[in-house]
Computed example of a mutant assay.
Amino acid sequence: MISTQNKFDYRQPKVTVIGGGTGLPILLSGLKEAKCDVSAVVTVADDGGSSGSLRTSLNTIPPGDIRNCLVALSDAKQIYKDIFQYRFAPEDNEFSGHAIGNLIIAALAEMRGDVHHALKLLQVMMAIHGQVLPACPYPLVLQAHYADGSMIEGETRIVAEKRPIDCVSVRVANPDKRPDAQPTAGNNVVKAIMEADIVVLGPGSLYTSILPNVVIEEIRQALLDTPAKVVYICNIMTQLGETEHFTDADHLRVINEHLQAKAVDYALINKTTVPYEYIESKETPEYLVQVVHDKQGLLKEKTKIIGADFLNLKESGVYHDQRKLVAEILKIYRGDY
């Protein structure tokens, strides 16, 4: 008789991570190191910096977050990663601020006809361990709705507004060119969610990195239908203009409200106190205070809470420790909770 004691040992855990911003690549590199089969679903609503410029000029999806995720999952030599990440200096006129990788992604999308085929080629060129999937095959515009009934469009404007958001939605960019188009999931995105063992939301900015993906209807429905365990990584700090005064329960509540169901199975929440000097640091002015724990509020969300020390303190700010996150994700995968 064949033993079933180690029934999960025969293959790599399939982990699909959904988000954007700086937090996503950190987790991806940790999952890669742990030999997981990784799919990264990346937001396409960024409209700032190099990504925003290329998105406007070439009518393509913003490549910045995709570039960072490719590098995080790459087994290429470090020199190739460094070239891909190199950003032109401010004095370089029209190239100022552009990362070489952004230009390569945009050029390959034009050469191959779409971003899907461009990324298939890049996966070979960059020796990618896993796959990077745009949440939508074309650029989206993020819409923030406020309690007074007003609405602002564009991630950059929303962040600059710095006032509490009621909910978010997305629409297609350039509606004159796609008058009948609705935001749809990108190639293989729904498949990656449905075939995963674990689906992770975050880490990242709640309203500008995570929710722009969740509100795409096909992705929202896949998150409700997937047999995978859905895990949310709660922010450690509140963010100016997005989650001021938010508790950990508020973060989870907003996720579930946008999912239109209490669909998050597990939430990873930091339980260690952030040192005072990091909260007051001039390097992180967008941080306000540490997210407050709300036990009673969490109980209402019907989610299994996993509290641990997830802190990784750096001069540039407060981050999640990738190895500690990965360790807890693998425990969930093995059924230890």
Rank of each mutant, 00 (worst) to 15 (best):
E218N: 02
Q85S: 07
P137N: 05
N6D: 06
A173T: 09
K282C: 13
E33A: 15
D148I: 02
D336A: 12
Y138L: 14
K295E: 15
E33D: 14
A308N: 11
N102P: 11
I165Q: 02
H320F: 10
E286S: 12
E301A: 06
L108H: 06
I66K: 00
M111G: 07
G113Y: 15
T243G: 08
L119S: 14
A327G: 05
A261M: 11
L24R: 05
Y333E: 07
Q322N: 07
V199Y: 00
L201G: 06
S150V: 05
A89L: 15
I105Y: 02
P134H: 03
R171I: 09
R67K: 07
S209M: 07
S74F: 00
R87K: 08
T226C: 02
Y333S: 12
R87H: 10
I18V: 08
C69D: 00
I105H: 01
T238C: 10
D248M: 14
Q123Y: 11
P183L: 09
K324W: 01
R220L: 13
I233M: 11
L28E: 05
P62N: 10
Y319V: 08
A34I: 14
E110S: 11
P179K: 14
L140K: 15
T243Q: 06
S205Y: 01
L70M: 13
P90M: 04
C36W: 00
K35H: 15
T284G: 15
I100T: 09
S39W: 00
S209Q: 10
I152V: 11
